[in-house]
Write a protein that binds this DNA or RNA. Structure first.
Length: 667
RNA sequence: GGCGGAGUAGCUCAGCUGGUUAGAGCAUGCGGUUCAUACCCGCAGUGUCGGGGGUUCGAGUCCCUCCUCCGCCA
């Protein structure tokens, strides 16, 4: 294991409802940092998860006629599916209802009681159920909850309290000794001026008004306060106080966290309560609390009632996960609020991705095909111009790191795009088509080599932000992930070997019809929740209860069972030939197939062993779903799926009716 | 009311510890190019850097004050 570790967390999300692009933003930001650190060679642990307790969830489940856990399970699997679709590379997903979390929280609570940091006393206050918050008399706004304006009820109950005041001075000192602790710094001032300096009140850390929580072991009518429960996920997930020595070791290895990432509204819990809990447990404090802004909609904060939420799945369906990630990271100045508008999204996708990056790759490959038979030439004489491009590439790589180190994602991407634009300009300046006409092979070689080397650097630098795009670029350029795609390789210009056979494909980002897309997106938002139901039914993955009103809404639109042509074109079907087939030991249904797609060979595992003997298959032409995410079946990697028709116990392979080259697209 | 942040080209924003003619992208106008996804490249701009005062040889960048917006708290 590497010496350098990097532990990063997102907040654990509250699964009372489906998530929106604001949550996707937090998680994407954390993912980008996790990927960046992995590329730099850090031993990274990236944690996300769900915060599954609380009265709100209990009531929501009741309203849906379900027990809380099964209600939550449905939403959690929806969330996990979303993260999968967004290429979120988390190392663990913690759910606060898991035993590994609950038992440790109970143990922590017991310990804090026994050392006197938590004590039992009477609590009286005004309670707002939707907000799960207690308010003092004077905090109320005309007798109503100052947060939501709802009704409050006077509650008196014996409760456990945490002695916050005992640790306040130590925390202030910690802030002073660690000026980087809270990012951005203005949040630190808020903490100091509003809470720490005026004096912390003891925090009520238990509830008796509902039962959906972690029971206090020595007094089970009490459940642990949601924040004490939720925040500790950051240590329970790693293995704090685990029975398993390997997990305990993991905790020692990664704790303290390098970054707790979150939106600004929960900074207070992370910057005050959490460090104090940790002090009481005698654990080191996290290195940084990093707060980002909100993603707002045109008409303000996202909210279900405003009907301005947009299901991230719809955007992924339409534009792809990389495009969505790019937009989020590029458009929102980190730390500030950003505004989501269909127009802004379209501009970013068309201008930056399609016109600048996609077109640069495409035009370069096109020239390479026409002038060099698709083979990357050796560079000839290097002039000052090439040196300038090379210098910019190296500089861009450094700027990306500097920007990422200060959480300036927009700045990092803009550094990459400087290089993209320089690439386009370089092509104009050198006019390879003219060089080809003049048959200036030496100069043409230099120019095209330089262009592709710049593209290689660009692809390497994009890895943290857009996980799929670099692979698409490499595939078309003709390089395999390896020594030319490492993070460090971006700082060296001239690594790309010559003689590579490129494989020009479709443009990696299609140019979009702005007007049509804006209209479609506006409509999606107008449809409110109906829109996400359509998406779910297409995916067939939801176990979430759909309220009747929303069901009716979906039925009225009448399109739930239809798919768009775009949905179909996402599936890349190819003609392939079986060149080898063998049974997989201990798997009576599976065969391991080697396929020839013309341009490449593929290994696919197929569940057709009951119907076909391996020798029957060799030579057969089949239809391959070529862009299916790779999986391991019985430990054997499968890169795609072949199509077959089946009914009952009958199954036949789908094939082509005439002669056509391998790799031909089926549509 | 207390504390903090922000106000820079039509729009979205960059401008670190004060230093030569204030920048980028988009939008606008003109021109070039044809390898490319009607794409790309060049040129042209416009800005009293919220208003006013001050410190300084010199301030968008520091200080004071006022206006507007936002955040946290009460």
């Amino acid at each position: 294991m590497s010496e350098r570790t990097f532990y990063i967390t997102t907040p654990i999300y509250y699964p009372n409802d489906k998530l929106h692009i604001g949550h996707a933003y937090s998680t994407t930001v954390a993912d980008t940092l996790a990927r960046y650190k992995r590329l730099q060679g850090y031993d990274v642990f990236y944690l996300t998860g769900t915060d599954e307790h609380g009265q709100k969830l209990q009531r929501k489940a009741e309203a849906a006629g379900k027990d809380p856990q099964s209600y939550i399970d449905g939403i959690v699997s929806w969330i996990q599916r979303l993260w999968e679709r967004l290429d979120i590379s988390y190392d663990d997903f913690i759910r606060t209802t898991e035993p590994r979390h609950k038992t440790v929280v109970q143990e922590i609570f017991t310990r804090l009681v026994s050392q006197g940091d938590i004590y039992l006393a009477d609590y009286e206050g005004w309670y707002c159920t939707p907000c799960e918050s207690f308010w003092t008399e004077r905090q109320l706004h005309e007798g109503h909850c100052p947060d939501c304006g709802g009704t409050v009820e006077l509650v008196r109950e014996p409760s456990y309290f945490f002695k916050m005041s005992k640790y306040a001075d130590r925390l202030i000192a910690y802030y002073e000794e660690h000026p980087e602790f809270i990012v951005p710094e203005s949040r630190k001032h808020e903490m100091l001026n509003n809470f720490l300096r005026p004096g912390l009140e003891d925090l009520c850390v238990s509830r008796t008004s509902f039962s959906w929580g972690i029971p206090v072991r020595e007094n089970p009518e009490h459940v642990v306060y949601v924040w004490l429960d939720a925040l500790t996920n950051y240590i329970t997930a790693l293995g704090y106080l685990s029975q398993d020595p390997i997990l305990r070791e993991r905790f020692e290895h990664f704790w303290p966290a390098n970054v707790h990432l979150m939106a600004k509204e929960i900074v207070r819990f992370h910057a005050i309560y959490w460090p104090i809990f940790l002090m009481a447990l005698d654990l080191p404090l996290p290195k940084q609390i990093v707060a980002h802004g909100w993603l707002l909609m045109k008409d303000g904060k996202m909210s279900k009632t405003k009907g301005n939420v947009i299901d991230p799945n719809l955007l992924i369906d339409r534009y792809g996960s990389d495009a969505l990630r790019y937009f989020l990271l590029r458009e929102i100045p980190f730390g500030q609020d950003g505004v989501f508008t269909p127009e802004a999204l379209m501009e970013r996708l068309n201008f930056d991705l399609a016109n600048d990056l996609g077109n640069l790759l495409h035009r370069s490959l096109s020239m390479l095909g026409q002038f060099c038979e698709g083979v990357i030439p050796a560079a000839g004489t290097i002039t000052a111009l090439e040196e300038e491009v090379a210098a910019l590439a190296v500089q861009s790589a450094k700027q990306v790191e500097e920007a990422l180190d200060r959480y300036d994602f927009a700045g990092a991407l803009s550094a990459v795009w400087n290089l993209v634009r320089r690439g386009n300009r370089y092509i104009d300046e050198t006019a390879p088509w003219a060089l080809a006409k003049q048959q200036d092979v030496n100069r043409l070689g230099t120019v095209l080599y330089t262009v592709f080397e710049a593209l290689r650097v660009i692809s390497v630098l994009l890895q943290p932000f857009m996980p799929k795009t670099p692979h698409k670029m490499w595939e078309q350029i003709g390089i395999e992930p390896g020594e030319f795609t490492t993070w460090a390789s971006a700082k060296q210009f001239g690594l790309l070997p010559s003689g590579i056979q490129s494989r020009k494909g479709d443009p990696i980002f299609p140019r979009l019809d702005v007007r049509a897309e804006v209209e479609a997106l506006d409509q999606m938002m107008d449809q409110k929740q109906g829109a996400s139901i359509v998406s779910e039914q297409v995916q067939g993955s939801s176990t979430t209860e759909i309220p009747a009103a929303e069901k009716a809404d979906a039925e009225m639109t009448g399109v739930a069972q239809l798919i768009q042509i775009e949905d179909f074109t996402k599936v890349d079907l190819r003609v392939a030939q079986v060149i080898h087939a063998e049974a997989i030991p201990k798997a009576d249904k599976l065969l391991k197939l080697q396929l020839d797609l013309g341009t490449e060979k593929r290994q696919v595992v197929s569940g057709i062993a009951k119907y076909y003997a391996p020798e029957q298959l060799v030579g057969q032409k089949v239809i391959l779903v070529s862009n299916l995410k790779p999986v391991k079946l019985r430990g054997v990697e499968s890169n795609g799926m072949i199509l077959a028709a089946s009914v009952g116990e009958q199954l036949v392979l789908a094939t082509v009716s005439g002669d056509i080259p391998l790799g031909a697209k089926v549509k």
